[in-house]
Design a binder for these strands. Structure first.
Lengths: 340, 340
DNA sequence: TTGTACGCGTTATCAG
DNA sequence: CTGATAACGCGTACAA
């Protein structure tokens, strides 16, 4: 059951005017005699009348809604991003329609569909298929097709083979900064923990990891790269594995803060001290990083900025303005206790 | 610009049928000859036609949308709650419309308005005015008025003087369990940190705190109750204050996990050991609690359950079923390293 | 089984 | 300044 029971007709009748006039005072779209305007306003107030946005959107073809797809609300990084987007959206007169895909591609497709049917005016896309290194073409096409009709901005991702508007952090640079920091602190044996080989975000960091080793004449050992997923559990499990190796790294680059914290916990429970015995670094600078003890060295993606930028670009796209396809934000290295 | 360019008329014309028939195959609402059905389906597929939900909702008066108001996406507790609600919603065929009020009452009002205009079928309400101990009547009336037309479920809150459907954790009991645990462990001097005197959630815990002291013949000292807000910063600041007192508690009950962690950090940075020198307990069992080192003793509100229950009740309300006004979930004490 | 025509609540166009 | 009236895209009695 919907709220609406009272319509413009009702208030028009009560005011002895036509619906057109009511609409005019509602939208201030044409001059109305002050006396009639006031009469109408009074009746609107009296009944607490709210126009039905559905009907309105149906005619002016504007819903004021922006769809936002994100993979996981339990990873603080994403709420931070869409928090930034939301603030920007509000200033621009848009409302966000948040969709948690739970990193599930089919759910992603469903939401994509649903958002289109709901006539959102633009889409902010994070996670899932746009971070997949081998995304099935069907999934790519889905997005490509939608993009023909409605503007999309990808955040920290891409659609291989299809130019899209994108906003991203230079994750490669971020990982590189981290590596350099570790190396500068004398670490010669560095491991990598977390992420999946399938995801672009992992791949970028892994590339930076490898090249940094190479550039510093340090050896790359495959068994010192232990992927998994993006969770604390993964960090814990993989660090446990490292612990059982005869020869292990003295420092670890982790996929994100969650993984890093899991790794920290595993190390600590084995009696290791951080950073004296082992250095650990995360990524994203979620609240967790500075909450930990010792505080976690990490890289900030300026998550709110990321969301804000994406929303700004999307709004320009909606206004049919030309915008450059790619916007890259520079990450910031945050050196804390866990590595020095 | 909206996606829709092709309508039922277009596909009707192409199939040489009437829009009615198209609508019938779309909704399977009446028998259609198999051959024509297939012809129509083919054309729909071909053009990738998607019906306009706006128009549809306008006639059947169902949007399938549930509005969700929450105060702060940067407090993990809330994403956990609406995560639970979202899973439940999906099974029931609803889509959540998430609105971050940033604990700002005016923003809350705006969203409330916007959601009604958007014809959501129900509302899940968290934070803000429903947790205010002295909520201005105007704000209460806003909600009361909406409630007459559209079902609302309040989560962990209430509207003083107005019966509402509510789902809540027994926070009083939670705090009591925590107190008993501390007392059982020999603590005789216990402090309280965080929250604001204005919020009901703080008040409930504070009541439990006071009564537990009384019931155990322990003295209540006003200067050992240091409120503030719900942030890590608050925990840190207040613990710093405690540190400068000549006589201070040996244990602390904190408003939530964030405050507790702030307090922990402050204590640690002063060289205190946890739990040997000082015991600290949080509330909510967010991811943070088990991520910390030492792990944080806390109380689980079963946040996902909370969201799920609320959504279930709301859906019954929408179906006009009778549902009991109040549902209380029992919290669970989680004893971890920070207190023993 | 299918088509016609109206209604859903607004906005917009065009006369007056 | 104001009032009919036609869209907007779809569902659905009612009739055929």
């Amino acid at each position: 059951m919907l709220l609406e029971s009272i319509t413009v007709y009702d208030i028009a009748r009560e005011a002895n005017v036509s619906v057109a006039t009511v609409s005019r005072v509602l939208n201030d779209t044409a001059p109305v005699r002050t006396s009639t305007r006031q009469k109408i306003m009074a009746i609107i107030e009296k009944h607490n009348f709210q126009p039905n946005v559905l009907a309105r959107s149906l005619v002016n073809k504007k819903t004021g809604m922006i769809g936002v797809l994100f993979p996981d609300s339990s990873n603080m990084f994403f709420p931070e991003v869409f928090g930034g987007a939301e603030r920007a959206a509000q200033k621009l007169g848009y409302t966000l329609f948040l969709c948690n895909t739970f990193s599930d591609c089919s759910r992603e497709s469903e939401y994509l569909n649903s958002l289109c049917e709901r006539q959102v005016e633009g889409l902010l896309f994070m996670g899932g298929r746009i971070n997949s290194r081998h995304c099935p073409d069907a999934l790519v096409q889905e997005v490509v097709h939608i993009q023909k009709k409605i503007p999309i901005v990808l955040i920290n991702g891409s659609l291989p083979g299809h130019p899209c508007h994108r906003v991203k952090t230079d994750e490669y640079l971020g990982a590189q900064l981290l590596m350099q920091h570790l190396i500068d602190h004398g670490h010669r044996r560095i491991g990598f923990i977390g992420g999946t080989a399938e995801t672009t975000t992992t791949f970028e960091k892994l590339q930076a990891y490898k090249r940094s080793l190479l550039a510093n004449s340090l050896s790359y050992r495959q068994d010192w790269v232990r992927l998994g997923d993006f969770s604390m559990a993964c960090g814990r499990k993989q660090m446990d594995q490292f612990m059982m190796m005869p020869e292990r790294p003295t420092a670890f680059l982790c996929m994100n803060d969650y993984v890093a914290i899991g790794a920290m916990k595993a190390a600590i429970s084995r009696g290791l001290r951080i950073p004296e015995d082992v250095a650990i670094a995360g990524f994203d600078d979620t609240q967790l990083a500075s909450a930990m003890n010792p505080e976690l060295t990490t890289v900030s993606q300026h998550s709110e900025q990321l969301g804000r930028q994406a929303m700004l670009i999307l709004s320009k796209l909606i206004q049919k303005e030309k915008v450059k396809k790619l916007t890259v934000l520079e990450p910031t290295l945050l050196i804390r206790q866990s590595t020095q």
